[in-house]
């Protein structure tokens, strides 16, 4: 039963990604769509860390920054092809997450939140101040991925917006597939178990510190790949991608949609990516309306949009 739920979710997501472009009034919406998918990917990583394992990070933008700047710097300085730079960034993020997480995740409570906050700020500071390498707060160009030209040679002619819509859409689907696999796998169960009760998780033989670290590393890699995709599609990156606000934004998106649910978190990313676009009409009141929406959701649907709605639907069935 669970397997079919998983593939229904993925099928629905794939259909949504494939069909919505037919309703796009202009090419601009491909760009909004790919931005949404990149955010969705980062937030899917938050689902694994926060929704499954119950750990809070306020510094995941730091990993997005590493992923993004890997794509900006590695091709220029070391001749790494941009596609490989994504992998390199993910590897660096994974190793850093391991080194940072190892001492912190042994502690209970909010230590991870505070320590990861420090980590994120540190990354943003390095990106801002190492001007010789990163060119500081003004940002830096990112080389072209090169794939679009290759596709053109093969006769597939996509606009830049279309191309990135497809690439980020596929990446989101893969990310969602992996996160859903994890959910009901032995490791995923161990993560959710420690979320439920760390003491009980220990008594059934779960090495709590170890699986927490696994979740932290996996989610860091999600953030890193999302940061890389963002940098590559914008062909430009600034240290803001690693900033505190971006970290908070990731957590907010996940919590709004439902942090324990992959489709929920993606919906949350969708809402918070699209709302500002819609609200440009009310430019002055944008922040006000966003804040109001957040408060209303947290008051009336505290588990987030998708889990709360699912629960109500199920309740009606019984």
């Amino acid at each position: 039963m669970r397997i079919s739920t998983k593939y229904w979710t993925l099928l629905f997501l794939a259909a949504l990604i494939a069909v919505t472009p037919f309703f796009f009034p202009s090419g601009y919406y491909f760009r909004v769509g790919s931005l949404l998918f990149v955010n969705g990917l980062a937030v899917t990583g938050i689902v694994i860390l926060t929704g499954y394992a119950g750990q809070i990070s306020l510094g995941h933008a730091g990993f997005a920054g590493i992923g993004g700047y890997a794509c900006a710097l590695a091709p220029v300085h070391w001749g790494v092809p941009p596609a490989l730079a994504v992998v390199l960034g993910a590897a660096v993020s994974g190793v850093l997450a391991y080194l940072v997480g190892r001492p912190i995740l042994r502690l209970k409570g909010y230590y991870l939140g505070v320590a990861s906050l420090g980590f994120g700020i540190l990354v943003a500071m390095v990106l801002n101040n190492e001007r010789a390498l990163t060119r500081g707060p003004d940002g830096i160009e990112v080389p072209d991925l090169g794939l679009r030209g290759l596709l053109k040679d093969w006769g597939l002619n996509l606009t830049n917006g279309e191309f990135w819509y497809v690439v980020t859409g596929i990446c989101l689907l893969i990310g969602a597939w992996i996160a859903l696999n994890l959910h009901s796998s032995p490791t995923g169960r161990a993560l959710r178990a420690l979320h439920g009760s760390e003491v009980a998780a220990g008594t059934v033989g779960i090495d709590v510190a170890r699986v927490k670290l696994q979740a932290f590393v996996i989610s860091a890699i999600y953030a890193s790949v999302a940061g890389s995709l963002l940098a590559l599609q914008n062909k430009f990156i600034t240290p803001d991608v690693a900033g505190f606000l971006h970290s908070v934004e990731m957590v907010t998106m996940a919590v709004l949609g439902g942090v324990s649910s992959v489709p929920g978190a993606i919906l949350g990313a969708g809402v918070l990516t699209l709302l500002p676009q819609v609200l440009t009409v009310f430019a002055e009141y944008e922040q006000l309306i966003l804040g109001l929406v957040m408060m209303l959701v947290m008051i009336f649907l505290p588990e987030g949009l998708v889990p709360s709605i699912l629960r109500r639907l199920r309740g009606r069935d019984e």
């Binding site: 994890l182 796998s185 032995p186 490791t187 169960r189 178990a193 059934v204 996996i218």
Partner: peptide, 14 residues
């Protein structure tokens, strides 16, 4: 758990 646990990568890629 102790019987069913295995490599994380196997779990991630089903």
């Amino acid at each position: 758990h102790l019987q069913e646990r295995g490599p994380v990568l196997a779990d991630l890629f089903n």
